[in-house]
């Protein structure tokens, strides 16, 4: 009789392995079920804590209180709107009086202005004097302004004539602003 063959022992080993597998599987099943339940409960509790509904109610209460001051809110809105727009206007608004003051200050006292046209792009001055020196002084003053980049950036002589009848020199100049 051979003593090498031991079928009973192998059967016991397999049976033990199977039992272990079943144990692990059962444990996993129970753990997964409990785990899902606990996670779900945890999330439910967190949602209750966060509670956006109570905050919404608080927001509505605040809106209700603010509505009593609706008038003031509208007035303040209009006021800030006007301030913003007026500041913009004062920045972009052209100031021709400044340019006019600057140019008129450069006109010699003996020089009589016949026409003076000014806008934001150009200025045309036509005048006369019985002194050629005054005419020269007028041109020099405007040339200096161009050189110093003061108010005007160019100077063009349109005409320079002598009126023998009146004994005056008439000049017309055009400048770019």
């Amino acid at each position: 009789m051979s003593t090498d063959i031991n079928l009973l022992l192998r059967t016991d080993e397999e049976s033990l392995k199977q039992k272990r597998r079943i144990k692990i599987l059962n444990f996993t099943a129970v753990a997964s079920l409990i785990g899902v339940g606990l996670i779900s409960l945890g999330i439910f509790i967190l949602i209750q804590i966060v509670n956006p509904e109570s905050l919404k109610k608080e927001q509505e209460d605040m809106l209700g209180r603010i509505s009593q001051f609706q008038n003031r809110q509208v007035k303040l809105f209009v006021l800030n709107n006007r301030v913003e727009n007026i500041e913009k206007i004062l920045k972009i608004r052209k100031d021709l009086s400044k340019a006019m003051n600057g140019l008129l200050a450069k006109i010699p006292s003996n020089f009589s202005i016949d026409t003076f046209e000014i806008d934001d792009k150009m200025v045309i001055i036509a005048g006369q004097s019985n002194s050629l020196f005054t005419i020269g002084e007028f041109i020099n003053n405007l040339t200096d302004m161009v050189r110093n980049k003061e108010i005007i950036k160019s100077l063009m002589l349109n005409s320079l004539v002598m009126d023998e009848g009146k004994n005056t020199y008439q000049i017309s100049v055009k400048s770019e602003m």
Partner: peptide, 19 residues
Amino acid sequence: VETISKNVPLAEVYSVKIG
């Protein structure tokens, strides 16, 4: 021109033609 620039409502003088 100078005075009206300091009046309300805000105005801009965009052209002056003196003849």
